[in-house]
Design a protein around this nucleic acid. Structure first.
Length: 585
RNA sequence: UGGGGGAUCGUUCAACGGUAGGACAGCGGACUCUGACUCCGUCAAUCUAGGUUCAAAUCCUAGUCCCCCAGCCA
């Protein structure tokens, strides 16, 4: 093995928890419950998505938390349950995508795939039970009236005139609601709690509404549907969920959650709330993401710029990187905004280890090696990973005509430019040292058309026998052997860190980054990439990590997505010198 | 101006009366056949004001600021 091919030592396993000696507050509660032998020290969580959109990286945080906790605890379980109580917004397409995404992230719900709609009959019986206890009543107020009767944040509400109907009348009315005797929105079933409660959720919340919509699972079997606040505690309880973990905005609903379990006198699940994930330069609500899809700002839910699981997957993110990210961001109750640079760090770290190296030229500049025989072709065997010999090597053809990156040549280079320029010698990665002799330009435009260089045959393989050093090593492809590809360069979706929280309250879409996707259609890539598999990831040396697009790439038309750039200290130098120039001006 | 939450380096998580620590980002350097990776160094924080204590991020009191709630959405 050559000196420069030293093996990288296996890094610490990503995602390991050993680094965090302290438990987050939820795991601390669970550990406490176990030592107290609560529920027989059983740990059972659930992930309860509503199938009204695709899962995003924020959901991944919840998935990793819920399934992670189950995995960490001996005998622990995590259910996957669809919270499908609003047929007007939900769809089978979303169910399919959610199933695929959770599985892809690496989690297993075993035989515990549930639907809240499976409990509709039981939920109905529980509602009847509340009526019989005088804890629920049918209310004929219109939606508008209900709002008025509810009061405001500072004023108490007042009792509905229907609040004191007899049990018999309520049973009769509720039965007829189910039977479809009343029009949509004409009546609701409400809990009978306290219209003067300072917590608005306790002011006789609606338990059931009349809604004629075809449900994706129960069809037209029902015309009344239970509300989240009633469905959720009951579903958790029926499944024996010990710890029901949800986001902060449900904190105010916890008294109602507890009220339901208490009045029904069924298994007491405990709701615990944590802060949802926010990421810089993107949005994280299903409504806003749906907006972007429907208005065509992105191609689909799995557009590689989307923070959805399917978008990240198509972009080239791995489940390991996403899980590592979720471990690193932690779990707490502070509203937070995580720097997307952390996500990028996680994928770089994972792909650095896993991705084979290739050479690809995004913006080709023709180079002719004048002293290289015109008909000659040779093959260099180049390692697929400089630090890992186990990843093998591949032949890379070389000839008299090459392409290099336009950015790698400057006729009049600044101080620290270590690449090719007239009279300067650089190394072609894995091949030869070359020196630039001549620059051919378009007479009219001044555009650089091609470079003429000479090579040193003694530097074959990239090392000079006389110990001569070069400052730069650049990537290349042999022009006649290279193949064409389309490369899509992705950047952040928005131009500002928090598109929803800017001082001037513009629509978040006005902050969309017009340069979030740059399609480069005539890239030249090395021939070994010809048979790259759909979704496969590579490092294009000196450029970044790229994967074969799973939708648009084919044998005839290769399409690569840029997952993330390499860290680029040259770009940093350029930026700071530009900044200096501005100051001078 | 009701109720429920939250305030620790730029960001994020920790420290649970006893040295404010990690990660990411930043900056500087070493190494380098990827200006990558790796390594080393460095910058940098307890919302404010009182109080208790030998000792306070942590306990007490009073403020300040931020987030959530008035869907027949979840």
């Amino acid at each position: 093995m050559k000196e420069h091919e030293k093996t990288i030592s296996p890094k610490k396993t990503t995602g390991e928890k050993s680094s965090s000696l302290s438990l987050d507050f939820i795991r601390a509660i669970i550990a406490q419950d176990k030592t107290n032998n609560k529920h027989g020290a059983r740990v059972h969580t659930r992930f309860p998505p509503e199938p009204n959109g695709y899962l995003h990286i924020g959901h991944a945080k919840s998935i990793c938390l819920n399934f992670g906790i189950a995995e960490e605890n001996e005998g622990g379980l995590c259910n996957l349950r669809f919270d499908d109580t609003n047929p007007s917004k939900e769809d089978q397409e979303y169910i399919d995508s959610i199933l695929e995404d959770v599985r892809w992230l690496g989690f297993d719900w075993g035989d515990r795939l549930f639907y809240a709609s499976d409990y509709f009959e039981k939920l109905y019986d529980f509602a009847v039970h509340l009526i019989k206890k005088s804890r629920a009543y049918v209310c004929d107020l219109s939606p508008e009236e209900i709002r008025q009767y509810r009061g405001t944040l500072t004023e108490p509400g007042k009792d509905s005139p229907y609040r004191n109907r007899s049990v018999e009348e309520n049973i009769d009315l509720f039965t007829r609601m189910r039977a479809g005797e009343f029009p949509d929105g004409s009546r609701v079933l409400r809990a009978r709690i306290d219209m003067k409660s300072p917590n608005i959720n306790m002011r006789d919340p609606v338990l059931y509404r009349i809604l004629r919509a075809t449900h994706h699972r129960t069809g037209n079997q029902w015309c009344i549907y239970p509300m989240y606040d009633f469905t959720h505690p009951v579903s958790d309880s029926l499944e024996g969920i010990t710890h029901s973990i949800c986001t902060l905005e449900f904190e105010d609903h916890r008294p109602l959650y507890d009220w339901s379990l208490n009045e029904l006198d069924i298994f007491r699940s405990r709701q615990i709330e944590f802060a949802r994930l926010n990421l810089t330069y993107t949005v994280m609500s299903k409504r806003k993401l749906l907006d972007l899809v429907e208005e065509g700002f992105v191609s689909s839910w799995d557009d590689p710029r989307m923070p959805t699981i399917s978008g990240l997957r198509r972009r080239g993110y791995t489940p390991e990187a996403i899980r590592d990210f979720c471990d690193r961001i932690g779990v707490a109750k502070n509203d937070s905004m995580v720097d997307i640079a952390l996500l990028e760090h996680c994928i770089r770290e994972d792909l650095n280890m896993k991705a084979q190296r290739r050479m690809a030229v995004l913006n080709p500049l023709k180079v002719v090696i004048d002293n290289y025989p015109a008909e000659k072709t040779e093959e260099f065997v180049i390692r697929n990973h400089p630090g890992n010999p186990l990843m093998g090597s591949r032949p890379v053809p070389f000839s008299r005509t090459l392409y290099i990156e336009q950015e790698d040549f400057m006729e009049d280079p600044p101080k620290k430019f270590f690449r090719l320029s007239p009279g300067v010698e650089v190394r072609l990665r894995g091949a030869y040292f070359i020196t630039c002799d001549r620059v051919l330009k378009d007479e009219n435009t001044g555009e650089i058309l091609e470079l003429h260089c000479t090579y040193d045959p003694d530097t074959r393989g990239g090392d000079s026998p006389d110990g001569r050093k070069v400052k730069g090593t650049i990537h290349w492809v042999s022009a006649p052997h290279s193949i064409e590809a389309e490369v899509r360069l992705y950047d952040r979706l928005f131009t500002v860190e928090n598109p929803c929280g800017e001082k001037e309250e513009r629509d978040f879409k006005t902050y969309l980054n017009p340069e979030s996707m740059d399609i480069v259609s005539s890239c030249r890539i090395e021939p070994s990439l010809k048979n790259a598999a759909s979704g496969e990831s590579f490092q294009f040396e000196r450029l970044g990590y790229f994967c074969v697009d799973s939708k648009d790439s084919s044998g005839e038309h290769l399409v690569f997505n840029r997952t993330v750039t390499l860290r680029d200290s040259w770009a940093k130098i350029e930026r700071s010198s530009e900044a200096r120039e501005k100051i001078v001006k």
